[in-house]
Nucleic acid binder design. Structure first.
Lengths: 265, 265
DNA sequence: CGCGACATTATCCTATAGGATTGTGCGCAT
DNA sequence: ATGCGCACAATCCTATAGGATAATGTCGCG
């Protein structure tokens, strides 16, 4: 029953159901408009109804599911073209600022180094060496993580892998902004966006990586305005790429209604 | 929209519990750090545990409650000064833009009246009649609602009444922006902010009303830049007002830990 | 042949009981 | 006196059963 060997954090069945269902939505295993039956899910996952109910309530609060009070839960439809543009407009308001703040934070930490307690010992003259800790302001670990997130996986990888890496990078920048509120606000936009990332075309992965690296470089070298502008450019180009793929998918696939009912015995 | 008496929408017990608990948090009937017992709430509200559980899951997803997996739910603490400033910085990114879009939308609707689809037949010759619809762009009803929301209640009213009116105005502007995504993003920030609105001082209600009316006027008269600037000014002044009251409250009330638990026995 | 009304079914919502886990208080040894 | 261990209690989590509601299929009529 218990003893899943490596579970550092407590994971209840509700959490398990939540991540499983969210994963299904992200992988498009649950298409928009599909109906989620509480009974069916409970039997399918071998859980009770209560954790399923809790997971559905959370997903509904995140905007991934819609609930009609006595009719059941359904997966929210994909964003329309107008909503999609609106979402990118909001990203344009938040994410460049987050990138700027991330770069500023590094600079501020550096400038305020004198106020840092006993951290002064970090003043080694290794700025020129391209090795481990050539970066000041952000810690080397933070810079490493940021760069790692900026890199996209090997070409040919699954689209899902790429989209997750993309989300990780943007979340990483948001976290580095130093504002938990801002990071949370950005993360909130991610869920809906993630579904549309599936429409990305393989050839744009390389462009994305270049733009990500430009943002990361500006942040690490503490150039706030450059970081802001790089993020803005990246978002604008990303919007165009997604929009094109989005329109293409919309025209090719008019209105398929795969009735994937709960025929699970 | 209107109507509190006529609620044609289905309301389950879970919804009831959700609104009740949220109201208690907003009214500070539940102080930050307080522990919420599922059993206790179920008995207190005369509901079963399931709807309580669903309501708590939703509130947790909104960030109002914190959940420790096998320990229970607690009310999230108030924002720190830094988080408070961060939140206002985000508002500064979103709300002025929303005001601008609201004003632009009115202008666009007016200019693009010919593009309006089949809405022409809904006019029924009433649209042309003057008097009611002296304002162009936005409908008269929308303008009325906006102005009504901009007005603050009579002086001496309860703080809660004022804070709710304030929230209504900002939500109204967000809705009028025409972007459902933007409105949702702004609404998401509201919950945490609402708690801090309780620290407002009575004499600032008048100032707030003046600023609200300035924003509303700019929107109705379709002056996008003026609306954006008015909202920005309002937010900046509002931030200063709240911050002052916030600091005052913090100094007067250093660290009271009212153990309102059942330690009576 | 189309439409409306009715009965049936499936599903959701609610309620209660039992198992598992965490936090707390007491006692004892060092 | 303080730290450790154990046991108790409280609470959460899970499971199952019953009532109520909406959707669906069928029948009869225009």
């Amino acid at each position: 029953m218990t003893a899943t060997s490596a579970t550092p954090q407590k994971r209840t069945l509700a959490d398990e159901a939540y991540t499983e269902l969210k994963s299904r939505i992200m992988r498009s295993a649950l298409v928009p408009g599909a109906k989620l039956s509480i009974d069916g899910l409970a039997k399918q996952l071998a859980f009770s109804q209560t954790p399923i109910r809790e997971a559905l309530a959370r997903l509904e609060s995140e905007g991934l599911l819609a609930r009609r009070p006595l009719s059941g839960y359904t997966v929210e439809p994909l964003l329309s073209a107008a909503e999609f543009d609106d979402l990118f407009e909001i990203r344009m308001m938040l994410e460049p600022r987050a990138a700027r703040r991330a770069a500023e934070r590094g600079a501020r930490d550096l400038a305020g180094a004198r106020t840092a307690t006993v951290f002064a010992e970090s003043g080694r003259a290794g700025a020129g060496s391209p090795g481990t800790a050539s970066i000041e302001g952000l810690t080397a670990a933070q810079a490493d993580v940021l760069l790692a997130c900026a890199r996209t996986p090997d070409a040919g990888a699954d689209k899902l892998v790429f989209t997750e890496a993309d989300a990780r990078f943007h979340n990483s920048v948001a976290e580095l902004s130093g504002s938990a509120q801002l990071a949370k606000a950005i993360r909130r936009l991610d869920a809906h966006l993630h579904l549309h990332r599936a429409y990305i075309e393989p050839e744009s992965i390389g462009e994305t990586e270049v733009e990500h690296l430009a943002v990361a470089d500006a942040i690490i070298t503490q150039q706030p305005l450059a970081a802001e502008e790089a993020m803005r450019r990246h978002l604008e180009r990303s919007r165009i790429r997604h929009r094109a793929a989005f329109e293409a998918a919309r025209t090719t696939q008019p209105t398929s209604k795969p009735r994937r009912a709960k025929a699970t015995r």
